[in-house]
């Protein structure tokens, strides 16, 4: 009798598990389809034939026409925007990552007067949307001769300064990581004769690959996709535009003409991000601190 009861119980648990699993997977599948449809649709549109596909769900023919158009159009020099954005984003990647990591390390390891206050100030400043300061930043750069009616490369430097200047404020995720790295590593290195910078560069940085990769990705993504700051600072100088500004201006100028070009541009924009992510992904997963300390 008891045998029967227990079998019944087991089977009901199994059934419950199966139901909940099926529900979860169904929901997840539906969600991922919803997310991926616009992406696939965009890619399909970008490969439309020369006749275009505006207003249609699917293009009637396929070609690389719009990609060629994108790179040869002289009014809107996409390759130039792409290069601008890439250079800005790469420089910001290096600068912002260093600022963020250094700031996080200092906040995690050093004890100095006003540390707590500085931390909360950073938190509060970080909560304000960045574009609130846009007008102020514009006029500051204008008075410095780096915005408005000036050479295109000056505007690009201004953008780099805007993006990497505030990077230090985003220290808290990295600080959380450093807090988990045992302090006795710093202490051991210090006793071994390392200076502060040697401790940072030789001991802590090599252990921090996951967080450096995360910070680097974030530092790249920000400038790469930013529209608000760049559109405000870069003005009407086509050669100085970034991809976001350029593509937007292009499509608003003539949505009919540039519809498929825009789609091709959008696909191209996604390429570096995907490549970067795939390249750095393994560091995310790999924990490197194993064996440092007991734990």
């Amino acid at each position: 009798m008891s045998q029967l009861v227990s079998t019944k119980k087991t089977s009901s648990i199994k059934r419950k598990k199966a139901i909940s699993k099926t529900t979860a997977y169904t929901a997840l599948t539906v969600l991922s389809i919803i997310w991926i449809i616009p992406l696939i649709w965009m890619i399909i549109q970008s490969f439309a034939g020369p006749e275009g596909s505006k207003g249609k769900l699917f293009p009637t023919s396929f070609s690389f026409h719009w990609y060629a158009e994108l790179f040869t159009n002289e009014t809107y020099p996409f390759w130039r925007w792409f290069l601008n954005t890439l250079v800005i984003a790469l420089i910001c990647l290096v600068l912002s990552t260093f600022f963020t990591i250094a700031m996080a390390y200092v906040m995690s390891r050093y004890r100095f007067k006003g540390r707590k206050k500085l931390q909360s100030l950073g938190m509060i400043l970080g909560m304000f949307p960045g574009f609130m300061s846009m007008a102020a930043i514009y006029y500051i750069f204008k008075s410095l001769g780096m915005a408005g009616d000036v050479a295109w490369w000056k505007m690009l430097i201004a953008l780099i300064l805007v993006y990497s200047g505030s990077a230090g404020l985003n220290y808290y995720v990295s600080k959380g990581f450093f807090d988990t790295v045992s302090k006795s590593l710093d202490e051991a290195a210090r006793i071994d004769g390392a200076t502060n910078s040697q401790v940072f560069f030789k001991v802590i940085l090599p252990l921090s690959k996951p967080i450096i990769v995360y910070t680097a990705l974030m530092s790249f993504l920000g400038p790469w996709g930013d529209f608000i700051f760049s559109s405000y600072l870069l003005g009407n100088e086509t050669a100085a535009w970034t991809v976001a500004v350029g593509l937007y201006r292009m499509i608003t100028k003539d949505p009919e003409l540039y519809y498929n070009t825009f789609m091709a541009g959008a696909v191209i924009v996604a390429v570096p991000i995907t490549a970067l992510f795939l390249g750095l992904q393994r560091f995310f997963v790999e924990g490197i601190t194993g064996g440092a300390v007991k734990g």
Partner: peptide, 8 residues
């Protein structure tokens, strides 16, 4: 150190 503190 108690937790060895080896450079991993």
């Amino acid at each position: 150190f108690q937790n060895y503190a080896l450079y991993p």
